[in-house]
Simulated assay, not measured.
Amino acid sequence: MKKHLYILIAILTIISCKTEVKERNGKLKIVTTTTMITDMVENIGGDKVEVQGLMGSGVDPHLYKASEGDVSKLFNADVIIYSGLHLEGKLEDIFEKMRKQQKKTIAVSDAIDKSGLISSEYFASSYDPHIWFHIGYWKQATQFVIDELKKIDPKNAESFEKNGQEYIAKLEVLATEIKAIIETLPIEKRILVTAHDAFNYFGKLHNFEVVGLQGLSTATEAGVQDVQKLANFIIEKKVKAIFVESSVPKRTIEALQAAVKSKGHEVAIGGTLYSDALGNAGTVEGTYIGMYQYNVKTIVNALK
């Protein structure tokens, strides 16, 4: 499969050398990777851009492999916007080939100073890539994308700035709302147990102890010892609920629940959280703001 993709890349490269990049109907054609980025770029670009997202609801970016159709979309784009920090680990080779062909690529994680990132031995980048769960960081990423698009498409700079600032204002309102909801949950109950460590930036921002059964990447598997160790932690800390993630199979959390029960204790599954992808398009949870609100209400209600 990988060989076929590289052959397709070579063919498209030859074609692209003979064809100037043109805007379609005066609109910049942008290809994004994750649903969070797609939502952000649609808010910034408005009707001045055409946005194609590679990944849909429930898709795990850690494991995502590009199809031949994806490679074609990437080559035909004017701009590629992706998360970075090896979140889309299996696409890194393709991104590198795009850069070598002078394709404009933007990694939103470049907006965040490395001193603010959480170190992680699980990734080649050495950092946890789940930055969207820190609303402050997502605001920085939004401003970064605004500035980059203004450079690429100066004639629509005013529109990008206006739309982008309106979106940032909504993120500021979100931050205030979320803080008020979380403050109803006592500090000692702020223990978040999920399928994998996607929520460490959330924990950093909102003072939660976050424990994932798998590592930061869903490519890592939880062993029997991991399950037993976490089961003991849940019992010791009197954790009321644990959570499934929409983009990760729920069997690991169900195994954890069973392990707790085998030790004579009970822990509820508090609900499904959106971690590496938003909800279905057209729903409230299909937006970044709606996803964040849903997650927080689900967490707080289950842990109270």
Score class of each variant (00 low, 15 high):
Glu172Lys: 06
Ala180Trp: 13
Lys189Asn: 10
Val211Tyr: 06
Ile191Ala: 13
Ala141Tyr: 00
Ile182Phe: 04
Thr218Leu: 04
Val227Gly: 11
Lys151Arg: 13
Glu158Phe: 07
Val239Pro: 03
Thr184Phe: 14
Pro249Thr: 06
His134Lys: 13
Gln165Met: 09
Asn156Pro: 10
Arg190Gln: 10
Asn200Ile: 03
Ser159Arg: 02
Ala258Ser: 10
Asp147Trp: 01
Tyr137Cys: 01
Ala169Pro: 03
Leu230Cys: 12
Glu209Pro: 01
Lys155Pro: 05
Glu158Leu: 07
Phe160Tyr: 06
Tyr167Val: 09
Glu236Asn: 14
Val239Trp: 03
Thr218Val: 05
Ala219Asn: 12
Lys237Ala: 05
Asn200Glu: 11
Val145Gln: 00
Gly212His: 12
Lys229Gly: 15
Lys170Asn: 14
Asp226His: 04
Ile187Pro: 02
Thr220Phe: 04
Ala169Lys: 09
Glu172Asn: 13
Gly223Asp: 12
Leu174Tyr: 00
Ala219Val: 09
Ala141Arg: 01
Lys204His: 05
Val193Ala: 13
Val211Asp: 03
Gly136Val: 01
Ile191His: 13
Glu172Thr: 08
Ala222Pro: 00
Phe144Asn: 01
Val193Cys: 11
Tyr201Ser: 13
Gln140His: 00
Leu216Gln: 14
Glu166Asp: 08
Asp147Thr: 06
Glu172Trp: 04
Leu149Thr: 08
Lys139Ala: 07
Asn232Gln: 14
Phe133Trp: 02
Asn200Thr: 10
His196Thr: 01
Leu216Ala: 15
Val211Thr: 07
Lys179Tyr: 08
Trp138Glu: 04
